[in-house]
């Protein structure tokens, strides 16, 4: 959003003398390009956003400081709570993909499985495809009158809804696509985790007479918890940032009447910042999203001690 440049890496320079004492400047020199990038494109915009959330921003720049007015207005705005609810619902559905991914990844990891690489590519493809392209295809699949999904449902005697234009269903439709397209990434991470589980454990379990299901529950899942944890965090953060998929599948408020009831947090932000040109208010929304994601992630890290095995 913002493209202003940082006054040349001052912060990094100030750190230098202290660092010289320890490891020398070399390590910093090597990470400097990355650090500059992060500072310019992430840290500085975050600071600016925090500041702008306290201002009323003109359409073409120029801001007036208005204190917490934006936040007062935001917390009284029913759209914030409906957007938060929608985002939570979406996240809830997409997170269901994590156990599914664990199960599929372990199936793919079965020794001696034929065409394993082929399946892997198949599941991974949606992740590398453009969200817009995915959305175009799913829009056609979801089409109420002519879509293949409702055609198949009809075969079972079910009259399918107008998926993308019925409140409630619209969000579920987006979540189905979200789940489907995140599956591949989760499976790759989990697959790598599976490789690190020693084969002897399975042999031992088998000697003890454990069924494949028992092996999955008592060997695979516990030893995979670090990977599952990572996937969970990434999936939840990604879900909270839902925008492009929703925008591409459902469209804008001028083309789809269910949008106002189906707004995600980021869509709400986009709507205020880039459609209504109320950028100060949008900055406040962005800060709220930032804080919510921060809290959710923090809670997860706190809880991980209870279920993630790190040995």
């Amino acid at each position: 959003m913002t493209t202003e440049t940082l006054p040349k890496g001052r912060a990094a320079l100030r750190e230098r003398p202290r660092l010289l004492k320890r490891d020398g400047a070399w390590p910093w020199l090597f990470v400097l390009p990355l650090l500059i990038g992060i500072a310019v494109f992430y840290l500085w915009p975050i600071i600016q956003t925090a500041y702008f959330s306290l201002t009323t921003w003109g359409v073409f720049g120029g801001s007036t400081f208005t204190g917490v007015a934006n936040y007062v207005r935001l917390f009284a705005d029913p759209q914030l709570y409906s957007a938060l609810g929608n985002t939570l619902l979406y996240t809830g559905i997409v997170v269901l993909g994590v156990p599914l991914a664990v199960w599929l990844a372990s199936l793919l990891n079965t020794p001696g499985l034929r065409f394993a690489s082929f399946y892997r590519v198949l599941f991974f493809l949606p992740y590398v495809a453009m969200p817009t392209a995915i959305a175009m295809v799913w829009r056609i699949i979801f089409n109420g009158d002519f879509g293949i999904l409702n055609y198949v449902l009809k075969g079972f005697g079910i009259t399918g809804p107008y998926w993308i234009s019925t409140p409630g269903f619209a969000l579920v439709a987006v979540a189905i696509v979200g789940l489907w397209s995140s599956l591949g990434f989760s499976m790759i991470i989990l697959g790598a985790g599976l490789k690190s589980i020693p084969a002897e454990l399975y042999e031992a379990a088998e000697l003890d007479g454990a069924t494949p299901w028992r092996q999955f529950r008592s060997v695979t899942v516990p030893l995979l918890t670090p990977s599952i944890f990572f996937v969970l965090i990434i999936t939840i953060i990604g879900s909270f940032q839902l925008f492009d998929l929703q925008y591409a599948i459902l469209g804008s408020p001028t083309t789809n009447p269910v949008i106002p009831q189906s707004l995600s947090l980021v869509y709400f932000f986009y709507q205020q910042g880039f459609v209504s040109n109320d950028k100060g208010y949008a900055a406040a929304i962005a800060m709220v999203i930032f804080v919510i994601i921060g809290i959710v992630t923090l809670v997860q890290f706190r809880l991980q001690k209870r279920w993630v095995s790190n040995d």
Partner: peptide
């Protein structure tokens, strides 16, 4: 001056 803002209302 800010047509898009009320266009969104019409659509909704």
């Amino acid at each position: 001056k800010n047509t898009a803002a009320w266009n969104a209302l019409e659509g909704a």
